[in-house]
């Protein structure tokens, strides 16, 4: 049987992509292998680890649990799209660097996606709320502590400067 395909138009980080994709291609494989946006990572491919988190129309989802064809007409933001328009790091990204909220960097894009969305909905989260927001993102390096610190720092900085 031939590989069924479908044409899609997906906006990723503000850029529209029109292409023909195999229907079975997962969204994360589309981002990584087709668009070569390798910032989004694959950890488990069964929806537990959160490394593949991306923002779909404003909300974080797991890109291993969607087929690319389902994203047709939708807008995706990946870690590559989180920086400021001038390419400088967002306050959140900078805060991860400041507290060293990462080590190997593999879960980091998912953590950023999850906490970026958290801060949008809840500008002043408690440590408990941050932990809940990242509880769907597994990290093996940090013990989560410096990630929580980074998000709290980012929240303070955003509150005091108004900049993201």
């Amino acid at each position: 049987m031939n590989e069924p395909t479908s044409s899609v138009c997906i906006t990723v980080n503000g850029v529209e992509h029109r292409c023909e994709v195999p229907t079975r291609l997962s969204l994360v494989d589309f981002l990584r292998e087709t668009l070569r946006l390798t910032g989004t990572h694959v950890g488990c491919e069964h929806g537990i680890c959160g490394a593949c988190s991306v923002i779909l129309d404003g909300d974080p989802v797991r890109s291993c649990l969607m087929f690319a064809v389902q994203a047709d007409g939708h807008s995706i933001t990946t870690v590559e799209g989180l920086a400021n328009a001038d390419g400088s790091m967002s306050v959140l990204q900078d805060s991860f660097c400041e507290t060293h909220g990462l080590q190997c960097g593999y879960c980091t894009p998912g953590m950023l996606v999850a906490t970026h969305s958290l801060l949008k909905h809840n500008p002043n989260p408690s440590a408990g709320e941050i932990r809940e927001a990242i509880s769907g993102n597994l990290c093996r390096c940090t013990g989560y502590q410096q990630i929580v610190d980074a998000v709290q720092l980012a929240a303070q900085r955003i509150a005091s400067t108004g900049n993201r």
Binding site: E33, T40, Q93, C97, H100, C104, T108
Partner: peptide, 21 residues
């Protein structure tokens, strides 16, 4: 001291073996 490595990871510019195409 901030690390040398963190900026590339938070911007999605790490280069892992799976990124080699």
């Amino acid at each position: 001291r901030r690390t040398k490595e963190d900026p590339r990871f938070v911007t999605g510019r790490g280069r892992y073996a799976a990124d080699v195409q």
